[in-house]
Amino acid sequence: MDKNEFRCIECNEKAAELHRDYRNGILKITICDSCQKPVDKYIEYDPVIILIDAILCKTQAIRHILFNTSLNIHWKLCVFCLLCEAYLRWSLLHGSEPSSDPADFIRYTREWDFYGKFGLAALELCAFFCGVLLFLWAVVGCLQGGTLQLSLLLRALLLSCYGKVLLIPAVIWEHDFSPLCLGLIKLFVLVSNSQAIRVILNSSRRLSLMAVCLGLLSETCVAQACKKLPWSIQDMITFE
């Protein structure tokens, strides 16, 4: 990564380097000039510890991942999360149709319903991102006169959707409280999105929550429109 991309995980100030190499295997973590704390303590941590702190939505861990690493899997993670969500919707679609014929399962796998659910999930995710980015562009870019790094913000939002991977265990371990589990997973993803926005913009919690709520409203409107339009987008996509 370029030197000007490093950030202190404590105060969010820019840093020229994360550590200094004195040769012979001697490394010393750089101290931030602003807060007098280590710029990034996580460079010495095990990846498992970093992942746990990121799941706990710790600001320092998220700053480490977004600013001080070259992690570039956000698009792959996005596609995988969409596949998880599409599989959940597809399983709920055919889960209420029990059959003892093994050929039925093969027939279902060849149907276009799964791809239709994937398209709907992608459309709703795009609506969510558009609502968040437009709100932040209007508030930060226009009203506050600041600069908004859309590419970095989009990368943060994509990475913060990792909680959707939990949809697969929710389908595998079916039980009577699955709606509650799905609701908790959705809440966890929204909290992660909000924390990612706070880290990128170094903003207040109120601004990030407002952005996430507007994105959720946009996503909900698109989902309802797909169901209620006269020509039924959902029926055309899923061939039901």
Rank of each mutant, 00 (worst) to 15 (best):
T69I: 03
K76F: 11
K41I: 13
H74W: 13
L56I: 02
T59K: 15
V39R: 11
N72S: 14
I62A: 02
H64R: 04
C57R: 13
A54M: 01
A61D: 03
A54N: 01
Q60T: 05
K76W: 12
Y42I: 10
H74M: 12
I49Y: 09
N68K: 04
V39K: 13
I52Q: 06
K37F: 05
W75C: 10
I65F: 05
D40V: 09
I73Q: 09
N72P: 07
T59G: 12
K58H: 08
I43P: 11
F67M: 04
F67E: 02
L56P: 00
I52K: 14
L51Q: 03
I62L: 13
K37C: 05
Y45V: 07
K41Y: 12
F67L: 01
P38I: 11
D40R: 10
H74C: 09
T69D: 07
A54V: 03
L56N: 05
P47I: 04
I65N: 13
E44V: 06
R63F: 05
D53V: 02
A61R: 01
C57D: 04
I43S: 12
R63Y: 02
H74D: 15
L56E: 03
Y45D: 12
Y42C: 07
F67K: 00
I52A: 08
N72D: 15
I73D: 04
I52F: 10
Q60G: 07
L56T: 03
V48F: 12
D46I: 01
H64C: 02
L71N: 05
Y42S: 08
N72A: 11
V39W: 09
N72K: 12
E44H: 11
